[in-house]
Design a protein around this nucleic acid. Structure first.
Length: 564
RNA sequence: GCGCCCGUAGCUCAGUCGGAUAGAGUAACUGACUACGAAUCAGGAGGUCGGAGGUUCGAAUCCCCCCGGGCGCGCCA
């Protein structure tokens, strides 16, 4: 595709008072295929060339020399429309996919640069709820997307393994704890204790005070507190890793909040030395009044640190360690202000790289029946969602493909794929209402739709052995074939765009488009029963689609079963 | 009260740093399996882009105001 764009720039730059970068930027994709593959709008030229855009377009189209890459260059209203030479486009694209295989679509724009991605970050002692899925799945996908662009990626799971909640947990455990139950199902049990704490806190206000003091003890290194904390942490982490395994998610670092304990004092004194702090009502704060923001709290009255302190410290540590080009925080939109504050303090401290820290927010998950609350115990467990989706997938396989061998594995891939895709396919900034029916709907714009297209292709390829030897992609001339080719050629564009705006949904949309294009082709054009030469060409096209669906799903962290 | 985000077809959502006739899915209806997998495809129907101004050759997109919803606003994370 880039090859065609470059050619347009070369052609136009001779006649147009713009440099090739500007031309490239203005170049757009027309709304429909009848208007060609690229369009160059002439509005901006109108003033300078003292003529109407339509006339300029007409004149330019007339004067542009013929190019073998384009079958036709013509003016339509204020646009110059470029129609790619179909044979060339098919040839170049199909070849590139089949040649590069899993590397197709990848670029090297990020060579030598590092992206740090902070995502998932569940709280120890709280179950992995459906709410954590968003951060996990978006972060993981961005990781794969940046990797595909050649960046070095560092995925950090900033575990919520420190903070006042541990005071609460310790109090609960000392009062009501049962060792056997803790071993048996640590997360569920810790969660139960956590919920109970908040229930009893209402009638027993001293509990909150006790919890605060236990957290303070923990920070001061009290051995008993320390041991309990460590146990809670280990048990929880093992459970999280089990779930990450199911989701296919990995991290390069599990350095959570507690990791920064020893560094906090140094961070605070750094901020103090720069004269940014003041004492307000007994707490140590950085005023952000000049930015019209509430102050950033670094230390409470009782001397204990806060979330912001640890985030500040972590950012500094990470820059020293990784010298990132960019650091992404994949955290809910409800924490927007928090990150603005942290970034502002970093800036005030004189760290220029604060500009490279980006909060990647996402909307919250709501429920029809009121709100979900960890404290009240009305959480939807991620694992229940995954299990039910898998179950439904298995049921459908039972109906449609009873002879399938590894049903259980495929059902997992399809069910979990559906859940992940459901979360990634829409713009992340929007709130979503959790709805079992939607989660378990496998028709239309879903992962199973994309996976199904992939499985179908695999089925065709299984039935056609030995075709790879020779094919002539220039035979792919029908509209259906061309549409598929065009979409294949656009894959890199989708990856670049997804990274530009940090939205995996771009890839998800692209995959639905590609699968839809393939399905139309599939219903319109016979592959195996086509005339020999055409058959080879179509098999090559279909194999290219298979490859790109596979590559694209991988960017989302979704499996592509060969049968389903 | 102040700040941030969202508002597009009955429902769920796309809409490429302002561009050509605003597109999908879903639900309902009609049609296609003795053609490579019907988790699919084809078809019609469905819209004052929340409302009113403004900038521009041109606005769903940018600016201002209003309405509706979500979130946040010093010792939670």
């Amino acid at each position: 595709m880039q090859m065609f764009r470059n050619e347009i720039c070369k052609l136009l730059s001779v006649f147009v008072p713009m440099d090739s970068q500007q031309i490239m930027a203005d170049l757009e994709t027309p709304p429909s295929a009848e208007m060609g593959d690229f369009a160059f709008p002439c509005f901006k030229l109108a003033k300078e060339m003292r003529n109407s855009p339509a006339k300029i377009a007409a004149e330019l189209a007339e004067r542009l020399p013929a190019s073998e890459l384009f079958a036709c260059i013509e003016a339509r209203g204020p646009y110059i429309n470029f129609f790619c030479n179909r044979q060339r486009l098919a040839l170049v694209t199909v070849h590139a996919v089949l040649e590069q295989k899993e590397a197709y679509g990848k670029l090297e724009v990020g060579q030598g640069k590092t992206i740090v991605i902070d995502f998932s970050a569940p709280n120890i002692a709280k179950p992995f709820g459906i709410g954590h899925l968003r951060s996990t799945v978006i972060g993981h996908s961005l990781y794969r997307i940046y990797l595909a662009l050649g960046y070095r990626c560092v995925g950090i799971n900033h575990l919520g393994d420190w903070g006042t909640q541990f005071g609460k947990l310790i109090v609960s455990y000392l009062k009501w704890g049962d060792d056997a139950r803790l071993e048996e199902d640590p997360i569920a049990y810790l969660y139960e204790l956590y919920v109970r704490f908040h229930r009893e806190e209402v009638t027993e206000p001293t509990l909150a005070e006790e919890a605060r003091s236990w957290f303070k003890k923990l920070e001061d290194g009290d051995e008993r507190a320390r041991l309990l904390w460590q146990r809670f942490r280990e048990l929880s982490l093992a459970e999280f890793k089990r779930i990450y395994n199911i989701l296919g998610v990995r991290f390069d670092s599990y350095q959570g909040e507690s990791f920064y304990n020893e560094l906090l004092a140094d961070t605070i004194s750094q901020v103090e030395e720069k004269g940014l702090t003041e004492i307000s009502a007994g707490a140590l704060i950085v005023s952000l009044e000049d930015q019209d923001m509430p102050p950033c709290l670094l230390r409470k009255q009782d001397g204990a640190t806060l979330y912001a302190t640890r985030d500040l410290c972590a950012a500094i540590y990470r820059y020293q360690t990784y010298e990132f080009e960019k650091m992404l925080y994949v955290v809910g939109a409800d924490q927007t202000l928090h990150f603005q504050q942290v970034f502002s303090v970093l800036k005030k401290m004189g760290y220029a790289w604060a500009e490279r820290c980006v909060h990647v927010p996402f909307g919250l998950i709501g429920f029809k029946e009121g709100k979900m609350s960890t404290r009240q115990g009305t959480l939807v467990f991620l694992e229940d969602v995954l299990d039910r989706a898998t179950e439904l997938a298995l049921q459908i396989i039972q109906e449609k493909n009873a002879g399938l061998e590894n049903k259980a594995d495929v059902a997992r891939q399809v069910g979990i794929g559906a859940v992940i895709f459901g979360d990634l396919s829409n713009d992340r900034v929007k709130n979503i209402e959790f709805d079992w029916e939607k989660v378990l709907d496998f028709a239309g714009e879903t992962a199973p739709y994309v996976q199904y297209a992939h499985a179908r292709i695999c089925s065709i390829l299984r039935k056609a052995e030995g075709w790879t030897s020779r094919y002539d992609a220039t035979l792919l001339g029908t509209d259906e074939e061309q549409t598929v080719v065009r979409t294949l050629a656009r894959f890199s564009d989708a990856i670049v765009r997804a990274a530009e705006i940090d939205k995996p949904s771009v890839i998800a949309r692209y995959l639905v488009d590609l699968a839809a294009d393939f399905n139309k082709f599939y219903h319109q054009c016979p592959v195996l029963h086509a005339e020999v030469k055409l058959r080879s060409a179509r098999l090559a096209l279909v194999d290219a689609v298979r490859q790109v669906l596979l590559n694209g799903l991988a960017l989302l962290g979704i499996a592509a079963p060969q049968e389903m």
